[in-house]
């Protein structure tokens, strides 16, 4: 396990309800995890705790098996290994040009300047930012800002990448580019956790799903297992990915229309076919 939350409690000073209550959640190494849940279910708080920005008020957070320490040095170390991409890139980009912004985290690590420049240059090529390198941050479009904020974090070579709703406000094309980039990042051996509202995206991309509700973990597992629990998901008002909806509708139509010759035996979609269709919609 890479990161473990054990019975973690956290309540914001200004809020009557706890943001996380007795949350136990373990992030397995090397997986692509999706974190699903309604607005205000505690996804962002979870990320802030994982990055050591907040301290749990009860319970403990473990990084690679040992409890998280909150002294300056350990935090510095942790924040290099756990990269957090915030939802709003406007908040994340602090320096004035793209290149300077990417160098910011490296400079904070106290690396020598030639190494910083070399790593920045590499990140700029990897994230296709060559044309924007000398550009001031406020000239970029939202999609470009998102790309820079991902480069900001990835240049530190974290072991765990946390993404807070990375596809929010992005159009189809930018979402697709982002997913390609995430695939490359995952192939390099980085564990990724993405908080999202997009069930289809989660189904297609993730190989492990967490479902959060009111600050607790209600369900986790592989996408097939999790989304098979339709009634539970409906009761949480989350719903299921479109492909599950479509298959269920088709099965229902078939069972009503039992006179059709071909399907007289099953009255539904054969299990194997169903699984094959479901697999087609997963990214491989």
């Amino acid at each position: 396990m890479l990161l473990e939350f054990e019975k973690v409690n956290y309540t914001y000073p200004t809020s009557p309800q706890p943001a996380l209550q007795s949350l136990t959640l373990r992030i397995p190494r090397g997986k692509r995890c999706a974190l699903l849940g309604h607005n205000g279910c505690g996804k962002t708080t979870l990320f802030l705790l994982a990055n050591g920005l907040y301290k749990p008020q009860g319970g403990a957070v473990h990084w690679q098996g040992s409890p998280m320490r909150y002294d300056r040095h350990s935090l510095m170390d942790l924040r290099q290994k756990v990269g957090l991409v915030f939802q709003d890139p406007e908040q994340q980009l602090v320096a004035s040009t793209v290149e300077e912004d990417i160098s910011y985290g490296l400079c904070n690590l106290g690396l020598p300047e030639p190494e910083v420049n070399q790593r920045v240059e590499k990140a700029i090529t990897t994230f296709n930012l060559s044309e924007l390198a000398a550009c001031p941050v406020h000239h970029l479009s939202l999609g470009q800002k998102k790309r820079v904020s991902l480069a900001d974090v990835m240049v530190l070579q974290p072991e765990l990448l946390l993404l807070d709703e990375p596809t929010a406000y992005l159009d189809q094309r930018h979402t697709r580019d982002l997913m390609t980039k995430l695939r490359q990042i995952h192939e390099m051996g980085t564990t990724i956790v993405m908080a999202t509202h997009d069930l289809d995206l989660a189904y297609c991309w993730a190989d492990w799903i967490f479902i959060l509700d009111h600050g607790t973990l209600v369900l986790e597992g592989t996408p097939q297992d999790v989304f098979a629990q339709r009634s539970l998901l409906e009761s949480l008002q989350l719903g299921v990915p479109l492909v599950f909806d479509v298959l269920d509708q088709v099965a229902e139509a078939l069972s009503k229309n039992s006179e059709q010759a071909e399907y007289q035996v099953t009255h539904s979609i054969p299990e194997q076919l169903r699984n094959r269709i479901l697999d087609v919609f997963r990214y491989s």
Binding site: R79, Y104, L106, N108, G110, V116
Partner: peptide, 24 residues
Amino acid sequence: NYRQISLTLNSRGFTGDFRVCHSR
């Protein structure tokens, strides 16, 4: 915004002085 920025700066390893590099 100020509160968010201080979170971000911390998350990105702010050590007390603001340093960046460029290769221009």
